[in-house]
Design a protein around this nucleic acid. Sequence first.
DNA 1: AGGAGAATGTTCGTCGTCGAACAGTTCTTC
DNA 2: GAAGAACTGTTCGACGACGAACATTCTCCT
Lengths: 162, 162
Amino acid sequence: MTRSAAAPVLPDDVPPPAAPLVPAGLEQDVGYRLRLAQILSYRSFEDRVTGYGAAPRYLGLLALIDGNPGESQSRLAEAVGLQRSSLVTILDRLEADGILAREAVEGDRRSKAVTLTDRGRQVTAELRALAAESEARALDGLDAATRATLVAALDRIIANLR
Amino acid sequence: MTRSAAAPVLPDDVPPPAAPLVPAGLEQDVGYRLRLAQILSYRSFEDRVTGYGAAPRYLGLLALIDGNPGESQSRLAEAVGLQRSSLVTILDRLEADGILAREAVEGDRRSKAVTLTDRGRQVTAELRALAAESEARALDGLDAATRATLVAALDRIIANLR
DNA sequence: AGGAGAATGTTCGTCGTCGAACAGTTCTTC
DNA sequence: GAAGAACTGTTCGACGACGAACATTCTCCT
């Protein structure tokens, strides 16, 4: 990073690529990177995908319902790290869009079983493919072993904080 | 997940620990984990720290200003992954709290140089210590090599998406 | 010079998320 | 069995972040 004493030959009419700012004292902080990586990753995915309404933002939720049909709203909320109350609005919209359905569950008249519709499953599948593309860009340059370590480490963090 | 044919010996009056739900098709997805880990990590930190007003939420920003005093709002916003317009409100409050200051920069009357006050530096230092505690909990069980790989991988992801 | 274009910080309307409350239902415990 | 606690989904008010505008200032070109 230190500019060598030997002046560069080419005229630097091109400004240096604006060395990324580094937070003092958080040089090794994981939380800081976690937040930044998440914001950028999310944005890059949403910018790339259009025409699916609110679904892309909630792909994680949709995949969760897909893999665990009939689950209650409470458990879904906890699994995706959202508040029960927040989930209500989200499910309202996705239900209005014909992507999922809330059905009565026999044996407990309080809770509702959340399920994907056929259309919901199709939309989820398409979004999954787009997410995979987006993720490939994000993970470019990381070999398989590093990716595996990354996934395992994140899982451990999630488990520690749950 | 399939229940073995051999019935468990102990009476399971204790319900199974509610096996965490897994999103179908995203079993290896990094974006999903990134978001979840970030939400939980953030929440755990904010729950643990009280009495600092709005500062904890913006520790990353404060550390950034601490390490790069005099930087413009635009560059700060980009570095921390926020919108320029969002940063205005945040800086307004932190400035009102006496944590930072916006000074005129000579040579460009558009931009303003953001700096920490003495009090701001002290608050940042205290929050940094608290963040380190919180992070220790999150990273429990990960050895030094794994942590280093994690940090490097996140840095790479951030660089790829920037 | 001088005018088009870009960059800076800012305001404003919109929307998503939270947290505290609530009514209805189920569980627990005496 | 009946009352109290615990859980379900829900509503409502408060607040944060966004995106599109804007006025001001700077830069670049010819």
